[in-house]
Every structure is written in C-alpha cells, then in structure tokens.
C-alpha cells in the first residue's frame, strides 16, 4: 500500500468518528434549539488536549505498569458514553441548557483527543522524512477532507428530516456510536491485561473482514469488531440497552404528560 493511501485511510479512520459525532451533535443542538457556538470552544479544547496528550504519550504509556494508554483511552470512551446517555434523555425531556451544552462539549472533546493525538503523532513522524513527507501530508489532507465531508453529509441528511424523525435518527446514531465505544473500551482493558480474557462470541470475519475498507469505516464509526469476545458483546449489549432504555423512558414519559 502506498504511503499516500496509508495516510489517507489512517487519517480518514481517525477523523470520521469525530466528524460524524459532530454532525449528530450539530443536529442535536438544532433540535434542542440551542446555539451551536459550543463547537468552537469544544474544538479548541479538544485540539489542545490532543496536542498535550500526544506530547505526553511516552510518559502516559508507562503509567499503571504500562497500561496508561489503554486506561486513558477506555476512560475517554466512557467520557463519550455517559454524556450520550444524558443527551438521550434530553432528546425528549427538558434538561438545563448548560447541562446539554456541557454534555455535547464533553463528547466532542473526548472523541477528539484520542483520534487527534494519533493523527498528530503520525503526521509528526514524517515531518523530517523528505522521501515520503509530501505523500503522507497529501494523504492526510485528503483523508481529513473526506472525513469532514462525511460528517457534513450526515449533518445535512439529518437536517432534511422532520424534527420527529430527526430526533429518532440522532438518538439511535448517538446510541450506536457510544455503545461501540464501550465495546472498544473492553478490548483496550483486555489488551492491558485488566480483564479476564473471554472466548470469541462470534466470528464475522468471513462475511465482513475488519481490514476491508467497509470494515475499517464501520470500526471507526460504530466500533465494529468482527471477532468480539463474550465480554465485549455483553458490555455492548448492556451499554446499548441502558442508552436505548433511557431514550425510550424519556419518550414514554413525554407521551404520558
């Protein structure tokens, strides 16, 4: 695979998740009738924290007996999931504006930090490599462009829907993205040796290989894993049920009011 294509896929994979999340949160703001200015400070904070995290990665890697990267990444995944559950409730029940804005900001910052830091580390690795620098930078730019465009497309599509349908779509997409993060969080803890290894729940590698383009895109957005362990699947189902149940309860109580 050429360096340009490798850079394109790597950066696209990292940008896509944050871009899609931003597209969903942008529409959430519209549905909640809130200003969308929160994106600017959240983007700035996400960028700054990502830079700090990238700079400190060597130190972080040594924390907790070498499991620092995994623990922090898993915590960042959790920092997306929990506010998404709160936002799910807020889709149908009134929440204070500042809580909604804080939750949206936290989701975007947490999603940006891990992905942003990896892009910075990757691109930074080739700054002094004249042979491949232009290919890597071009690929990274194209990948970032496709990722951002995808987020805009998601946002534009949701913007064409009637508010009732948009609410359902935004809620379901947020739940799927956040539950996927919990599935990946378990994989990280397994990698760090912090959870007991469990056997494969199923193997979908033959039907949709994880390293195929579609597999990688689904991994980036929904945390797709072709061979999840039983523990991963269990955590995914529980996470999905909690988030979906919260939205369902909020919707039901609105109907009964």
């Amino acid at each position: 695979m050429s360096m340009l294509l490798n850079a394109l896929l790597l950066v696209l994979r990292e940008v896509l998740e944050a871009a899609v999340l931003l597209g969903l949160l942008w529409n959430y703001s519209k549905l909640a009738d809130l200003p969308r200015r929160w994106v600017i400070p959240a983007g700035l904070v996400g960028g700054i924290v990502a830079m700090c995290y990238a700079a400190a990665l060597e130190v972080v890697s040594d924390w907790w007996d070498g499991s620092g990267q995994e623990r922090i990444s898993a915590a960042l995944h959790l920092a997306v999931y929990v506010p998404v559950v709160v936002l799910g409730w807020g889709l149908y029940r009134p929440l204070q504006s500042r809580i909604v804005l804080l939750a949206m900001g936290l989701v975007f910052v947490a999603a940006s930090v891990r992905e942003g830091s990896e892009i910075l580390i990757y691109v930074g690795a080739f700054i002094h490599a004249p042979g491949v620098k232009s290919a890597v930078f071009s690929g990274a730019l194209i990948g970032a462009g496709i990722g951002v465009s995808s987020g805009i497309l998601v946002s534009a599509f949701l913007g064409t829907l009637a508010p009732r349908n948009a609410r359902t779509w935004v809620g379901m997409c947020l739940i799927l993205v956040a539950s996927g993060m919990m599935l990946q969080a378990v994989a990280l803890l397994d990698q760090a040796g912090l959870v007991a290894h469990s056997t494969k729940a199923f193997d979908a590698e033959r039907w949709l290989p994880e390293q195929s383009v579609l597999g990688q895109l689904l991994y980036a957005v929904l945390g797709y894993d072709s061979q999840p362990s039983g523990l991963q699947l269990g955590v995914y189902l529980v996470s999905f049920s909690i988030a979906y149940g919260t939205v369902w309860l909020a919707k039901r109580s609105t109907t009964h009011d």
Binding site: L57, E58, S61, D65, Q69, I121, A125, D190, Q191, G193
Partner: peptide, 12 residues
C-alpha cells in the same frame, strides 16, 4: 497501541 520513538510499550 502506539509506541513513541525510543520508547517501549507492553500489551497482553
């Protein structure tokens, strides 16, 4: 898992 230049990582 990322390993920085001159660094080391562990994983299971």
């Amino acid at each position: 898992k990322i390993v920085v230049g001159g660094g080391k990582i562990t994983l299971f």
